[in-house]
Design a protein around this nucleic acid. Structure first.
Length: 213
DNA sequence: CGGCTTTGACCCGCGC
DNA sequence: GCGCGGGTCAAAGCCG
């Protein structure tokens, strides 16, 4: 396991009046401003970890959705021994709205041809400084493509090898600083991570300790 | 031999 | 309507 450096520029805000929580955040890894007007390195998503019932680790922005426009409704996070997020996922609230709308909006027809609806797949990305492209996140991945694209990036495409899981991830290096690996996860694992409890144990212990104070 | 990577071809959404 | 380009497919090859 490589030691990765957290590149986030500012500390995330701490939520008020919550139970014990540990903040996390992801930065915008895009090479240019995205459609939200975020620049490279701007905080894209932030939230807090919570110790849930049954000692499971939850993620969210607290009881009041005031700090961000993305509501983390579920997660599946993998954290290394330095409490750095190395993989995970969240559901965007637009996804929930689309579920509620049912199949009516699932497809649209253009020119007599059934097109896939353009959906915003739950995904997030983060940067790490590492000599290794592939971070050990506890899941098994199979590479299914690699392609040169604009801005001299050369992303690799991976799929989770679990037969019922269609989570994907994209790995590429920043052209302006090739020592930085940008990893983008898409989807939510529908199966347990073999190494999950092993990697979460130190953090769970820390949360339990803080909760006891 | 199974699992994985490589890589050129192909698909298709989107902007013009 | 057309072409670009990001993403995916799938056959071939590699490796333990």
């Amino acid at each position: 396991m490589m030691e990765n450096q957290d590149l986030s520029p500012n500390p995330p805000p701490l939520l008020q009046n919550n139970n014990t929580s540990i903040p996390f955040f992801f930065t915008n890894p895009l090479e240019s401003q995205d459609d939200q007007g975020l620049a490279i390195g701007d905080i894209d998503i932030w939230g807090n970890f919570f110790l849930g019932q049954n000692n499971n680790l939850l993620v969210g922005d607290g009881p009041k959705k005031t700090l961000m426009d993305v509501q983390c409704t579920s997660s599946n996070l993998v954290i290394n021994n330095n409490n750095e997020i190395i993989s995970g996922s969240y559901k965007h609230e637009e996804e929930e709205e689309e579920k509620l709308m049912g199949n009516k909006e699932e497809k649209r027809v253009k020119g007599g041809r059934v097109m896939k609806k353009t959906t915003r797949v739950p995904r997030f990305a983060f940067q790490t400084r590492s000599v290794d492209d592939i971070l050990d996140d506890g899941y098994r991945w199979r590479k299914y493509g690699q392609k040169a694209v604009k801005n001299t990036k050369f992303p690799s495409y991976y799929r989770c090898t679990h037969h019922t899981c269609n989570v994907k991830k994209q790995v590429q290096r920043l052209s302006k600083d090739t020592s930085i690996v940008v990893t983008t996860y898409e989807g939510i694992h529908n199966h347990p991570c073999e190494k999950l409890m092993e990697t979460l144990t130190p953090l769970l212990k820390q949360i339990q300790f803080l909760a006891s104070l």
